[in-house]
Design a protein around this nucleic acid. Structure first.
Length: 365
DNA sequence: AAAATTTGACCGGG
DNA sequence: CCCGGTCAAATTTT
């Protein structure tokens, strides 16, 4: 009954494949757990059930800790050697959960040299971020914030996923990518010429799973996009992909700013310190040493108050400390990660003396 | 008619 | 020179 396929090579890749899927799945779980934690933190304090609130937090924290531990174990046990460009589909959940964010990756200075593998975008991660050393003063100056969502659309269902982030895009190009089965579509914010919003995104259909889209965003919206989602209660039936080899066709839906905030908060939660120059390019800055003021923000736990540093260079430095994280004592992710903070050109919006005020939703004003 | 997409040219980094 | 990202004219969609 049990097949003992222990062919050295063949099953090896399969093993790696499974391994990658595992990592991806874990990462996804962790992210979702983080979201839940976030949501909980936003929940207004219920005096009547303060105990339950505490319990909930504890529970979520345990879940998160489990994920973190599993991930760290996984990564310590085996580091994903980029030997083959095998692309693993990130998740196999199907319980009616369609059109969901599967995974998000953030890389600033990602280089894709024309070498062995660069064909498959989204160099697999699933662990890297925790151990990124940011402590080095780091003056990388040139990288435009870039993060990738992997989105899966369900057949026959209206795609409500982040394929539509609530923003309106205009396609300005399409390119065949070497080694990719499907062309890559280039989109930019419709209000580029109106408000100078430099946000762009590119959509790439996955090579093997045509239900998976890799959406890479570059730059953050500076425009005041209308979220106006409540136009009609009955969302028009959107055809998902009319023809093959067509990357994506985002309809229109809701929650623009919500999503934005959500993402921003997620970014925050991962711990970061960011600098934005007037150029629009981002700039790493030294981690905030004032971890002493680990005040509870947004009603509860994690991130310490933000630190806004404005240089005389008309550059705006927004630095954030890492998370305080009360996770299991085993794996303290107290390391401060470096994440790009994608603001567009804030030059128009702020002066070098503008004071940023972060509200509960993580945004500024 | 106006707005959005298509598609080859163009351009810059590696 | 190759590859990927963008421009812009032509063309299609609304």
């Amino acid at each position: 009954m049990a097949h003992h396929h222990h062919h050295h090579a063949a099953s090896s890749s399969e093993w790696e494949h499974k391994w990658g899927s595992l990592a991806a799945e874990l990462t996804a779980g962790r992210d979702v757990a983080k979201q839940l934690q976030l949501i909980l933190s936003f929940t207004p304090p219920q005096p009547s059930s303060s105990e339950q609130a505490a319990t909930r937090e504890v529970l979520v924290q345990k879940i998160l800790a489990s994920y973190e531990n599993a991930l760290s174990m996984l990564s310590s046990s085996r580091k994903m050697t980029p030997a083959d460009q095998h692309h693993h589909c990130p998740s196999h959940r199907d319980d009616g959960d369609i059109g969901t964010v599967v995974m998000m990756t953030m890389k600033s200075s990602e280089s894709s040299p024309p070498g062995t593998r660069s064909g498959s975008p989204g160099s697999e991660d699933s662990d890297h971020d925790l151990f990124k050393d940011t402590t080095s003063s780091s003056r990388k100056r040139k990288s435009i914030p870039r993060w990738t969502h992997q989105v899966r659309v369900g057949p026959g269902m209206g795609l409500e996923g982040p394929l539509d982030d609530g923003f309106s895009w205009r396609k300005y190009g399409q390119k065949d990518i070497l080694g990719a089965k499907y062309p890559r579509g280039y989109y930019r914010c419709t209000l580029r010429n109106v408000q100078g919003c430099l946000a762009t995104k590119q959509v790439q259909r996955s090579d093997d799973d045509s239900t998976v889209f890799e959406i890479t965003y570059r730059g953050r919206h500076t425009c005041t996009q209308s979220q106006s989602p409540s136009t009609s209660s009955s969302p028009a039936p959107n055809n998902i992909s009319p023809r093959p080899s067509e990357p994506a066709m985002p309809p229109a839906a809701a929650s623009a700013k919500d999503r934005q905030h959500e993402q921003l908060l997620l970014n925050f939660r991962r711990g970061l310190n960011v600098v934005v120059t007037d150029d629009g390019s981002e700039f790493d800055c030294s981690p905030p040493t004032t971890a002493t003021a680990a005040t509870t923000f947004a009603g509860s736990l994690f991130f310490p108050p933000p630190q806004v540093i404005t240089t005389s260079d008309n550059n705006t430095n927004i630095s954030y400390g890492g998370e305080q994280s009360t996770t299991a004592a085993a794996a303290p992710p107290a390391t401060v990660g470096s994440v790009d903070f994608p603001f567009g050109n804030m030059d128009h919006l702020f002066d070098d003396q503008t004071t940023f005020t972060f509200d509960n939703s993580g945004f500024f004003s």
